[in-house]
Computed example of a mutant assay.
Amino acid sequence: MFERDATTGTGGVLRGAGAPAFRLERYAPPEDLADVVERFWTVRWSLPPGVHVTQTVLPHACVNLVAEPGLFAAHGIPSGRFDREIAGTGAVVGTKFRPGGFDAYARHVLGRRAARLGATRRDAVIPARDLLGDAAEVGPALLAAVGRGDDAAAVAQVVDVLRAARPGPPEADPALDQVHRAFAAVVGGRLGPDARVDDLAALAGLSTRTLQRLLRERVGVGPKWVLQRHRVHLAAELIAQAPDGDLAQVAARAGYYDQSHLTTDFAALAGITPGAYARRCADALQGAARDA
């Protein structure tokens, strides 16, 4: 049995105006895949006829291998936010690779051919068959397992497929270790307000140039993108947890020098100001309390 991921936050998933339209479950990877996989996840939903809900996600700096009706593919980092319309009944099964993890996995599986996949290309959609060969035919079986409520079976099948395609145990990858160290510095709370790329490079033990090149080559985005996205994710989570809180304090806790900078970044990415998002979250909480 796979353990549910200990992470309880929903960083990147914006709260809608009403009750959640879907159920998200996350599972930790086995040790032999933990160098490249952050977690496995499943989403299922069931809405009344005629009801359509748009769910917005602010993507992380990573690739997701996703099985959904008619498509089993790896999806590169979207250029902007990701909007998905949900209707009827359905399910999706995903593998969230660590930042740089998909690139490392593809290099191990395919060697020099990995470059042709465009593993770090923004908005890339790579058919699972190009990475996993015939094993990619497991896509419909994954959806069937989640559809009947058997997440463990779905995750086990994904694990088997990823293990089978990988020739031997994880290889030493110093570049991937450096990527992990850089992202640990970002999420570890050690960066001060309005920290810059130079500050992140110092914490990661790299020169600024090396950090920029490393993230571009192995992740697909630069360190400035990573810092900004992390701050917006954190701000969105803080607002959702306490929508009546002081937005100036949210800005400071998220690493912004002041509230105006938070507002600019948040609105540009999420398409809504922090204040409007706080009101949406407050309305959702009140609606949930009424329905309880």
Rank of each mutant, 00 (worst) to 15 (best):
D103P: 08
A104Q: 08
A104V: 00
R107Y: 04
V109G: 01
L110G: 05
G111D: 01
R112Y: 01
R112C: 08
A114N: 12
R116H: 12
G118K: 04
A119W: 02
A119F: 01
R121T: 12
R122W: 11
D123S: 14
D123M: 06
I126P: 01
P127F: 08
R129P: 00
R129C: 01
D130G: 06
L131H: 03
D134V: 08
E137Y: 03
A141R: 09
L142D: 03
L142T: 01
L142K: 11
A144Y: 07
A145T: 03
G147M: 02
R148P: 02
D150I: 10
A153Q: 05
A154V: 08
Q157T: 10
Q157F: 05
Q157K: 14
R163S: 09
A164L: 12
A164E: 14
A165W: 02
A165G: 05
A165V: 06
R166A: 14
P167M: 11
P170V: 07
E171K: 00
L176C: 11
Q178Y: 00
Q178P: 03
V179G: 00
H180A: 15
A185H: 01
V186H: 11
V187R: 15
G188D: 05
G189A: 11
P193V: 04
D199W: 15
D199M: 15
L200P: 03
L200I: 02
A201V: 15
L203A: 15
A204K: 01
G205L: 11
L206E: 02
L206H: 10
L206R: 02
R209N: 09
L214W: 08
V219Y: 12
G222D: 04
W225Q: 03
L227R: 09
L227N: 08
Q228K: 13
R229D: 02
R229T: 09
A235K: 10
